[in-house]
């Protein structure tokens, strides 16, 4: 409602806003509670023995069965290590491949530059559902089935597209004087890449790291078809397998789920601001 008296407008408006904030907080709090309630149950059940579970599933009761965690870790631990290897290698690969290409696209002109760039960018429109089957046959023919390379190399190829796009735009916006100065000091292409372009692109590189991290860590369908050896399973497919093993042994099962969500959660707690930025940038690529 429009306020008739201009003099009182400000204080009145503040009061209205504050009252409205109550509705906002109510909505947001209910949404947050509903979002996290399943995870609360997950947390509670992970400490229960089976009789405790059948007695009450809603709140913690004593004694807490920490042995669920040691039991689960024996299975889930190796999945975490595999996921960590694949994710680290993929991130390093994406950073290297995409920053080099983006640097060339952004700072040098050469024949077919725009054509090559379009060739890369067009792939943003290609869904994984189209390429999944032929990519599987390719990986099989390359002998990378049932090996972590079969996850890492296609992973780099998939993630480099968006990374090159982001990095090229950013590097192209860097002031030419910096590169000119480096050239004056006798720096060649490698040194202006390593000492000028890369350090300045750190904010965008962090976006690339975060989108690659989440994508690789959470990838499910591709590892499911490439990996069949239990010792090579990554977390998502490992958990699916773990579930069929433990069926109704809910305590260790839920403890396994908790263990496998911890690594990223811990990273997130430290750099949540970067995550928010990286995820947002990743979403608006279309």
């Amino acid at each position: 409602m429009a306020k008739p008296k201009p003099k009182h407008r400000r204080p009145e408006l503040m009061a209205v806003l504050r009252k409205e904030d109550r509705v906002k907080h109510a909505y947001l709090l209910i949404a947050a509670l509903l979002t996290f309630f399943p995870f609360w149950l997950l947390f509670v059940v992970s400490f229960k023995s089976l009789p405790q579970f059948y007695h009450n599933v809603w709140i913690l009761d004593y004694p807490l069965h920490f042995e669920n965690y040691s039991l689960a870790f024996r299975v889930v631990g190796k999945y975490i290590i595999n996921s960590a290897i694949v994710t680290a290698a993929t991130i390093v690969g994406v950073l290297f491949v995409s920053s080099l290409a983006a640097f060339a696209f952004a700072r040098y002109s050469f024949p077919a530059r725009n054509f090559l760039f379009m060739l890369i960018i067009s792939l943003l429109m290609v869904p994984s559902v189209l390429t999944m089957v032929p990519a599987f046959v390719l990986v099989k023919n390359l002998g990378m089935l049932n090996s972590l390379w079969g996850l890492i190399l296609p992973g780099i190829a998939g993630l480099q597209v968006f990374a090159i796009y982001l990095l090229r735009n950013f590097m192209a916006s860097l002031p030419e004087e910096l590169f000119e100065a480096a050239r004056m000091d006798g720096a060649g292409i490698w040194r202006s890449y390593w000492h000028v372009a890369l350090p300045l692109s750190r904010p965008v590189l962090s976006i690339v790291v975060i989108t690659s991290l989440l994508n690789t860590w959470n990838d499910f369908i591709w590892p499911l078809i490439v990996i069949s050896d239990d010792d090579l399973r990554t977390i998502p497919i490992g958990l699916a397998f773990f579930r069929t093993q433990y069926q109704t042994d809910y305590g260790p099962l839920m403890a396994g789920y908790i263990i496998s969500l911890l690594p990223l959660l811990i990273v997130f707690l430290f750099i949540s601001r970067e995550f928010v930025r990286g995820l947002t940038a990743g979403a608006i690529k279309m």
Partner: peptide
Amino acid sequence: FVFTMPLVIPWVV
């Protein structure tokens, strides 16, 4: 922060 957190929980979980 609260509403971003579910995004880092593996969706398989």
